[in-house]
């Protein structure tokens, strides 16, 4: 894989994560437990889908198809999103925990990409970074509040953490071609991101009264569960096929349709 192909592969993996999670978040529009959260998740969905589109524009500038074609005319088995973002929206606890885990990972990744040696990636990361801080502010605050609010909220939040933790580690599954880009300081190493993510989320969960499956020794945190990989290798869950079918239905019915 040459450098351009590696950049395209990387951009596509990030865009696919954003696009699919954005659609999962949008499933709460009109259905969230509070109107404030309805607004918040509709906004977050719009941001994530917008980020996917911006990443896909860079992909296009490197000779790829345009963002709409990539999002709406590609089959599920051509996507490279991780399993984490494919999972059904679940209950509100799962939604909050998933979004918090994702936002934390994104902030950490963007902190590196803001210094990428690749100009278009560097500019976009600088743009997206402050937007994501508002997501994290919201989701982290919710984790802290719901973690020990009532017996039921604690139980549901803990169940969500237990379920989401190994899935979230899938965000850091190695993306094919990564090594070429790490050497050129275009992107950070996925292992570095995972280590920093564990360092970040563990104390937040602890403060919220929630247990996480990690082993802590002398300031380092290691995961105690097997990460759920496969997405970056285009091996997907049945859930992805379903959401892609829903997402692409209208576009495929009337190709090239415009609002």
């Amino acid at each position: 894989m040459n450098k351009n192909e590696a950049i395209q592969t990387y951009l596509l993996a990030l865009a696919d994560d954003e696009l699919i999670l954005g659609h999962r978040d949008a499933e709460w529009t009109g259905h969230a437990p509070l109107i404030e959260e309805d607004i918040a998740f509709s906004n977050i969905a719009q941001d994530e889908i917008g980020h996917a589109q911006a990443l896909l524009r860079i992909y296009e500038s490197l000779g790829g198809n345009d963002p709409d074609t990539m999002g709406f005319l590609r089959d599920a088995d051509e996507f490279t999103c991780c399993h984490f973002v494919q999972m059904p929206k679940g209950d509100w606890a799962y939604t909050i925990v998933r979004q918090f885990f994702f936002d934390a990972a994104e902030i950490i990744r963007l902190r590196y990409l803001k210094n990428s040696t690749y100009e278009l990636i560097r500019e976009l990361a600088a743009k997206i970074y402050p937007e994501e801080q508002y997501h994290l502010l919201h989701t982290q605050g919710n984790v802290e509040r719901l973690g020990d609010a009532t017996e039921e909220s604690r139980r549901r939040m803990q169940r969500a953490v237990d379920e989401a933790f190994e899935q979230a580690l899938g965000l850091f599954e190695k993306i094919p071609g990564e090594d070429v880009l790490i050497d050129e300081k275009i992107i950070p190493d996925s292992r570095t991101l995972e280590a920093e993510w564990l360092q970040f989320v563990t104390p937040v969960l602890k403060r919220s009264g929630l247990q996480s499956p990690v082993i802590e020794t002398n300031g380092t945190v290691e995961s105690n569960v097997e990460p759920l990989y496969g997405g970056r290798q285009k091996k997907h869950t049945e859930h992805l096929h379903k959401i892609i079918e829903d997402m692409q239905k209208v576009y495929r019915m009337i190709p090239g349709a415009k609002w």
């Binding site: 404030e36 607004i39 918040a40 719009q46 502010l137």
Partner: peptide, 13 residues
């Protein structure tokens, strides 16, 4: 602050 998100992406409530 009631909500860090609002009627458009650029506003809070």
């Amino acid at each position: 602050m009631e909500n860090p998100f609002g009627p458009t992406l650029c506003r809070m409530i």
